[in-house]
Amino acid sequence: MSDPYRPPSAAVPAAPTSGHTLLVVIGVACAALTALVPTLIVPSFRETFRMFGAESPWPTQLLLQGYPALWILPVLVLLLWRVVPWPRSRAKVACAFGVSVLVLGVPACMAALYLPIFALSQTL
């Protein structure tokens, strides 16, 4: 039994950290996969587009020139993990960002790579 005459403690219990590291690792892995896919695929598409000889749409040109910049995404996940102002939600926010980048980024890259092929098929 506690002492009824002692003032209550104002200490806040620490947030559990067991799953937080795993969430950050998942977020970084998803963001790294988002950067890895274009890094492996874009060079082969670049040669294909040169053989077409036609001008590529602007999303394709942006991806062909800027795909190495996608490697900043894992760094952004880690940055979010460190700077989000809500300590209990930092790992969740970082993981959500990494997963959303994967879910939205890879299909967007694939669409940008296939736009010239779709445009060429319409001219035939």
Rank of each mutant, 00 (worst) to 15 (best):
C109G: 00
L36E: 03
S44W: 09
G66A: 07
A91G: 10
E55D: 15
D3N: 14
K92L: 13
R6Q: 12
L78A: 14
W71S: 03
L73M: 07
M51R: 11
L79R: 08
P74I: 05
L33N: 03
G27I: 04
L104S: 08
S121M: 14
T60Y: 01
V93L: 12
I26D: 05
T39F: 02
S100T: 12
L115T: 03
A11Q: 09
P57I: 07
R90M: 08
A10I: 07
W81P: 03
L78G: 15
P87C: 08
S44R: 08
G105N: 07
S100C: 11
L23I: 06
L80E: 05
V12K: 10
W58V: 15
V103P: 02
T123P: 07
A35Q: 01
L23T: 05
G19I: 11
Y67T: 02
A35D: 00
G53E: 09
T39Y: 02
F52H: 13
V42D: 00
L36N: 02
T48V: 13
A119I: 11
P7N: 06
L115R: 03
V84K: 05
A11K: 08
I72V: 14
V103Y: 04
A69T: 07
P7F: 05
D3I: 10
L62F: 13
V77Q: 02
P85W: 04
P68W: 10
S121T: 12
G105Y: 03
L102I: 06
Q61H: 11
P59R: 02
L113T: 01
F118Y: 11
Q122W: 12
P68D: 09
M110A: 15
